[in-house]
Amino acid sequence: MKLHRITAIVFRHLYLYRRSLPRIMEIFYWPFLDLVIWGFITLYLARYQTQVPGFVTFFLGALILWDILFRSQQGITISFLEELWSRNLMNLFASPLKPSEFLAATMIMSIFKVVCVSLVMGLCAWLFYDYSIFIIGLWLLPFVLNLVVTGWVIGVFTTSLIMRFGQEAEVLAWSMVFLFQPISCVFYPMDVLPVWLKPVAWVNPAAHVFEGMRGVLSHSGQPVEHLGWAVGLNLLFLAAMIAWFHRTFAYCRNQGLLVRVGE
């Protein structure tokens, strides 16, 4: 073993961090998010220990629904990354394909992934834990649809960032969605959040879906108001993100980034 060759490789990787904010962020990102998520779960359990009914029902339901949101986002972002990895963006955008058609195709891919993942997770939960996601009842459908759209919002946002900043930002494809997890109140109610963070969670459509889910499971009322908020916010954010994607696309064309993004 030669030390100089080992240090050469170490330096090769350290050099990456000199000019890459996304890579530096990643070092701090996951420990921070773990601490926030598990901290709030611990608070929830400590505060409401005796009042948490059907612990498994809550957590497995939340886990399955969260994965639906995650896969929906991935369906958009990974489809774009696949084109970037195969350096195929040039072929696509030198064809009559419109950016909006490309987005529509990634949304279809996202639905395909969500259907596959839902089937697998639903089946596994039933086999291993005797748990049926259908315990949520008919509310499941609007919940899932809203989470799919929230996934699209985050997916289009992330894709725009990757298109703008190139391959070094591709780590966002896996990490961005988790930035929204603490304020989505997936495993704990919004009440657990500090006062200053509650308004931020309130404008997150996913938080309303998970609040609604807990409401249905604990039979504490119909989640109509939460669903209304989720639908309204989703439509607003989706329109904004699609507009932003088009703006970023125009910026990338102007800066010549579209032909360099895969390099």
């Binding site: 040039m90 955008f93 030198a94 064809s95 009559p96 419109k98 125009a250 064309r253 102007n254 010549g256 579209l258 032909v259």
Partner: peptide, 28 residues
């Protein structure tokens, strides 16, 4: 010419159509 980069100025037309405004018809 392929519409992948926007010109700073000047015009590109193909088949009598301007590329910026008839991108889809031209690239077909």
């Amino acid at each position: 010419l392929l519409g992948l980069i926007t010109p700073t100025s000047g015009t590109i037309s193909m088949f009598g159509m301007d590329l910026e405004t008839h991108r889809e018809a031209i690239l077909q």
